[in-house]
Amino acid sequence: MGDMNEGGSTKKFLYLNRKAPYGTVYALESLEVVLIAAAFEQDVSLAFIDDGVYQIIQGQDTTGIGMKNFSPTFNALGDYDINKLYVEKESLDERGLTEDDLMPLVYEDEDDDWAEKPSIRVVSRAEMADLMQDQDVILSF
């Protein structure tokens, strides 16, 4: 897969998540793409807006619906150097949520003596719009 980057080109990929998990398959299959993307050494960011914020909410329990709870997989993203998870404050506010309702996702910063740092960055809608402008490829599912 490293051959893909022979030209040394790194693109900025944004994964736009606007849908809640379980009701449809998009959230799960989006996460599967993100995990694959890690192998391509691109600059990856994840955006959670609208109902997408529910993908990383704490305390998901799917035993009653017969589906696999895939939220623990988000904990693994840090190990794949995917540590820019942008969550929109307005989307949280609208849904009666705060950052404390989200999973405490972290990564170890190799440039800072492997200090544990939060992967989640709560941003305003305006900041989210600016982030979008900064991308080469925007993937939505």
């Binding site: 736009l16 606007r18 998009y26 979008m132 080469d136 925007i138 939505s140 599912f141």
Partner: peptide, 8 residues
């Protein structure tokens, strides 16, 4: 435009 963003 520089990128296409689908609001699905």
């Amino acid at each position: 435009n520089d990128a296409v963003e689908a609001w699905l």
